[in-house]
Simulated scan of single mutants.
Amino acid sequence: MPKPRTARTNADAGFTLVELLIYMAFAVIVLTLVGGMLISTLTAEKRITARSEATTSGQLVSQSVHSGVRNSLKMELTSSHSGSYQFLVAETVTGAVTAGPECEAWYFTEDDDGAVYFKRDTAKIFDPAVSGDLQGWMLMAHGVAAGDSDGAVFTARVSSATPPTPASGVGLSINLPLGFGLGVTVSSGLGGTSIASGADTIDLALAVAAGQNSDPVQIESTTIRRVTSSEPKLCF
């Protein structure tokens, strides 16, 4: 009588189809979780990098304006009535004995997605909105918008009892009182622009874009002119 066959365990036996499906489902779940964490990490890193770059650009503009205005003999702010551009120019001096005055200028434009440019020269710097020339200008920040309700990046005003100087330009001059008997002379120029002269203080308020789905970085500062020893003669 033949003996019945007994089941033998084979060490080389493979997985069943059900086991493979279960393992594949587990692998998909693990990879999905890991991929989601990786994407979240990269997104957060990109957002942090964008905010850091926006903050650096905004602080660069603020520090440049602070340095130039504090050491200026005179400054003048030209603004379009629509707020689409502003041109701030200052005649600055250094502490060196042999060093002469220089012209420093900052130009904000809503073009190029909002940008602030800077230029320094030993000769008069002309308004780029008039000349249409940005050659020699350095881009300091892009993605810039006005940071205050008035729609202005730069605001000129008087903070001391020093009488304002007469305004330059063509048009009607008016004196805008700012309280305590102080004011800044504003000349309404051609082409829908106004020129503010005689101010000793610049308020800076700008918002720098920090990428999509992220609030812009707000930069605000106030700078007071401190140099009054000699008359400006180079930049105006």
Rank of each mutant, 00 (worst) to 15 (best):
R120P: 00
D121A: 13
T122C: 08
T122A: 14
K124E: 13
K124G: 09
P128Y: 05
P128L: 10
A129E: 07
A129M: 09
S131A: 11
D133E: 02
L134R: 01
L134I: 01
Q135M: 02
G136M: 06
W137K: 02
W137A: 05
M138E: 15
M138W: 08
L139C: 06
M140E: 05
M140A: 01
M140K: 05
A141R: 10
A141C: 11
H142T: 13
H142S: 13
H142F: 07
G143S: 06
V144N: 03
A145D: 01
A145G: 00
A146C: 03
A146S: 07
D148G: 15
S149W: 04
S149M: 08
S149R: 10
D150K: 10
V153N: 06
V153C: 09
V153Q: 08
V153E: 05
V153M: 09
F154I: 08
F154V: 08
T155E: 13
A156D: 01
V158K: 03
V158E: 01
S160T: 15
S160F: 12
A161D: 15
T162N: 15
P163I: 14
P164D: 09
P164M: 15
P164C: 08
P166A: 11
P166Y: 11
P166G: 04
A167N: 13
A167Q: 13
S168C: 14
S168W: 14
G169S: 11
V170T: 08
L172E: 06
I174T: 12
N175A: 06
N175E: 10
L176E: 12
G179Q: 12
G179W: 08
F180C: 05
F180R: 14
G181W: 00
G181T: 03
G181S: 07
G181P: 01
G181I: 07
G183C: 02
G183S: 05
G183E: 05
V184S: 05
V184A: 05
V184Q: 05
T185N: 13
T185K: 13
T185A: 12
V186C: 11
V186Y: 09
V186R: 11
S188D: 14
S188Y: 09
G189P: 00
G189F: 09
G189S: 10
G189I: 15
G189M: 13
